[in-house]
Design a protein around this nucleic acid. Structure first.
Lengths: 200, 200, 200, 200
DNA sequence: GAATAAGCGAGACGGTACGTCAAGTCTTCGC
DNA sequence: GCGAAGACTTGACGTACCGTCTCGCTTATTC
């Protein structure tokens, strides 16, 4: 056993933790992910480098945590629920248009690409991402889809994971590869295609 | 005008160019993309660093070019064509199963992730990727889909770009995020969904 | 007045004090003076760093104290006295040969060099050294020389400090600079030279 | 064979070398040897740290070299010769008084102590010191002493190394340990003692 | 005998410097 | 006269310790 010294989380300085995550987010926005250094994060946060290395294994982990912290630590996934007017098509179009608008917002560009770089190249972070960020969101989406199934608007035997993939993956890929325009029409088209594919 | 010195491509040493691209590919496979340095590529290729900087603007560009070179410099997209048995479902399932198998091959893991990291973070490379690598492949796929349209197996007004996205993006996303298993059944399911969505 | 907090020596933990001095001496022997850190001393002694900083101002002071403690805390200088056979030449040669042997002992090398580094670079410690370690030893040596003066073996007006310097400084310098062999013959030569110089 | 990369001295940048040695000397004078860091030397010299590490193994080696460079690279020891009036006593007193004055000069304090710390704790540097700095000086001193022997002012069989030690070591020790005043009288006393000891 | 205060172990903290690696630029030398 | 080799400045890496600062815990007076 190599017997690595592990720090005692009880003594952790909450003020420093916050300052580090804030600094990380600010720097990503200002200079772009690739140019952010741990040194710069430490300096900006007014913190010793060791305090970062003590609690995070890599720059990626810090950046990732800064997104986690941003997402508000929702404890339970309550508070965010999809609209349910009884019309699944209308509801999905509403949500997809909002998502498209979000992706198209240049303000989100740098941080979200940074997050994606992390989870693509580090499978541990990818697992954390699925667990802590993606899953809660997917769960509320699936809840809405399940309601649609019960209302007979979706095939009862539809694989909801697959439904979500067909709905979102094309949008995600377009954004990631910049391979096409992200418009409200595109959002609508994805909803139409998905509903047609999974109609009862 | 700052009048940047630009080298004369006519004088370029082809032997060095090849050695550099080969070294880049080897190193990515051996140590992983993130740990590859220009220094290491130069050393492995038996070339001065300046010879790399003279012809490529960044590590990403070298890596990207090493993939371009690998894809065989097809000049025209001939030589690769999708099977056409007349049965679009069977043909697509064949192709998708092969694609799934390719993505699942651990041998391709590192280089393809490296390539994706490049094009995600560098929009210039992303444009080149679309132009030089993605487009030719998409063109042959679209040719097969167009044949299906003419055979009445796909809606005549289907947006073929969208068809390809619905078909491939879910698979791509699963692979990128490691968010689910890549199996032959999954390949079939994607084909079924897509055909249902774009049925005439 | 800045009103520095000063600890109450009455409450000092004697067990910790000993553990620290022992640890310091052990570490100097094991890894050499330059590589000894307060952190390592504290860890070895099973003591908090603050307990060292509370009682010593610097690493040098700890090391120095560890030598003081080693020298046995003789209270009064009794117990050690130079041989006095009545023959100053024979007595000095005995003592000088012993000294040469001591310096040549590799076991003493590291610690004594460490001590010398301290007193060379820190004049406070140098003063303490002269007072607490050097003076008592010099006093017994001078006592023997004074007896020799009274016996007419040394000039009555000889400056005994100077006699000791002529006797010991060459040996000390040879050891410090490793500029020549330390042998019994060398010890004898120094005694001969000194006696010739200060003959009545 | 570990096959360490060794730089090619022919390509060494002389301007950088000078800047480093100058910066080292300046910093020792300004802040004291212990507080000089390689980082600070590099910054002051306008040089990358690697350029220091490429050519010197340690801070001590840089500092030592800065003294070597200062001593003027005398090629042959010519140019400096001791006075020879025919009167060894007068000549030695002249030289010793000058030496005492030099040691007492507070301007020389810091650098010479720094040099001594180096050669005391690093036997490699000590050997270089003897070879490159001490020996040439000793040689000219011995030449003068040899003349005195031929003039019958010193015993013909006197060990000149020993003579020099008796003459200089007490002075050196006093300075190093700050154990007594360095005065012209002291210089004279040392000459008197030495001449008496080594009289024919 | 309980209350209180000091010393203590532990170790997290903001820092400085370490010695290493690589980036991208500039220089030299050999073919 | 080009290009390999590699020295240069720069800057970040991750580590080791510095000296300071809480934490609980033990111990030893003081009321």
């Amino acid at each position: 056993m190599p017997e690595v010294k592990k720090p005692n989380p009880a003594r952790r300085n909450e003020r420093s933790r916050h300052a580090i995550l804030d600094a990380a987010r600010e720097l990503i926005r200002e200079v772009g992910y690739a140019k952010v250094s741990i040194e710069a994060i430490a300096a900006r946060a007014g913190v010793g480098k060791q305090t970062i290395y003590r609690w995070w294994p890599s720059k990626g982990a810090v950046v990732f945590d800064s997104f986690l912290a941003l997402s508000g630590d929702p404890e339970e996934g309550e508070g965010m629920a999809l609209p349910d007017t009884g019309d699944i098509e209308a509801d999905l179009k509403l949500v997809m248009r909002a998502t498209v608008a979000e992706f198209a917002d240049p303000h989100f560009e740098a941080p979200i690409r940074a997050l994606n770089l992390e989870i693509i190249s580090d499978s541990d972070l990818a697992a954390q991402y699925r667990e802590k960020l993606a899953r809660p969101v997917e769960d509320v989406k699936k809840a809405r889809l399940r309601a649609a199934q019960q209302a007979g608007q979706l095939a009862a035997d539809a694989d909801l994971d697959l439904v979500l993939e067909v709905l979102y993956a094309p949008l995600y890929q377009r954004w990631l590869h910049r391979s096409g325009p992200l418009t409200a029409e595109y959002a609508d088209a994805l909803v139409d295609v998905t509903l047609k594919a999974f109609r009862p």
